[in-house]
């Protein structure tokens, strides 16, 4: 287990997030795969989690004491696959097999197939109930508590199961549980708040019994600090409402929901990599 240092190395985390973004853009291009903007939206959360917060050892992905990270918004699989590869759970070469016939990397994270993937997601609204169960299991078994993180999208908060789990976690005071909501204000076909009213989202989580806070979801240092602080002494599960920009990091994709479905051309990949400082 790597022990989390007190102060996050913000420079390093920023660099990692940029590398993830670069890879995700490339993967989307190679595979002509959707959900590019959804993946770009959460690279800072993944960088903070995997390079600062999580107590994990990639060589022992099944260590029972490990912290768990569940990508509940499973359609950002490209971001998770890249993160796990760059963090050493498997070879970076495996990323080239994304969506290929017979491969292990389908467009949503699989069950029991890839080291580091804690749960098969892709149907929205499943990650938090599973996360509650994993967190509760440690208590039932009397184990040294580990932390459980679930990354949700804002559209995902449409699902009733999210709020059922939220009430359960609060009632059980699952203080080792942390939700990060990637609040990019878009869902698949419309603006989030014009679809179902999420706003005021922080207040909702607070009203549901969580220690809820609202931050800039691209402030990777702050993300790292707040996520590392779980449990934070409030005695409650922690909800970080991360205000984000869908398509973050590539100017011509930012806040343009066409990139929920579109894949970039080779020229667009080159332009994106340039912007990300990767060339």
């Amino acid at each position: 287990m790597n022990v989390t240092s007190r102060e996050p190395n913000t420079e390093l985390l920023r660099r990692r997030a940029a590398e993830l973004r670069g890879r995700v853009v490339l993967m989307s291009h190679q595979a002509k795969s959707a959900h590019l903007a959804s993946s770009l939206s959460c690279c800072d959360v993944l960088a903070a989690a995997y390079w600062h917060v999580l107590r994990i050892d990639p060589s022992r992905p099944d260590d029972p004491r490990r912290d768990r990270f569940i990508l509940s918004k499973g359609h950002a699989a490209m971001a998770l696959y890249s993160t796990l590869a760059y963090r050493g759970f498997y070879s970076v070469d495996l990323l080239d097999t994304y969506t290929r016939d017979g491969g292990k990397l389908a467009e949503h994270p699989p069950a029991n197939l890839l080291p580091g993937v804690e749960a098969a997601t892709g149907s929205l609204g499943h990650g938090l109930p599973i996360g509650c169960g994993i967190a509760l299991s440690a208590r039932i078994k009397g184990e040294e508590p580990f932390r459980v993180y679930a990354l949700l999208s804002d559209g995902e908060c449409n699902e009733g199961s999210v709020w059922e789990a939220a009430m359960f976690a609060a009632a059980q005071k699952l203080e080792h549980l942390c939700v990060v909501v990637d609040y990019n204000k878009w869902q698949a076909t419309a603006r989030s708040n014009e679809t179902l009213q999420l706003s005021p989202l922080r207040d909702k989580w607070e009203a549901f019994g969580w220690d809820a806070m609202e931050i800039d979801g691209h402030d990777v240092g702050l993300l790292a600090r707040l996520m590392a602080e779980v449990p934070n002494g409030s005695g409650k599960p922690v909800a970080i409402i991360a205000h984000t920009v869908k398509g973050k990091g590539v100017s011509f994709m930012e806040d343009d929901n066409n990139w929920h479905y579109r894949a970039p051309t080779a020229e667009e990949v080159a332009a994106a990599h340039k912007e990300l400082g990767l060339t």
Partner: peptide, 12 residues
Amino acid sequence: AGLAYAGLGPTH
């Protein structure tokens, strides 16, 4: 239906 969205994995 069925495996029309095979590439999206078993959730789909």
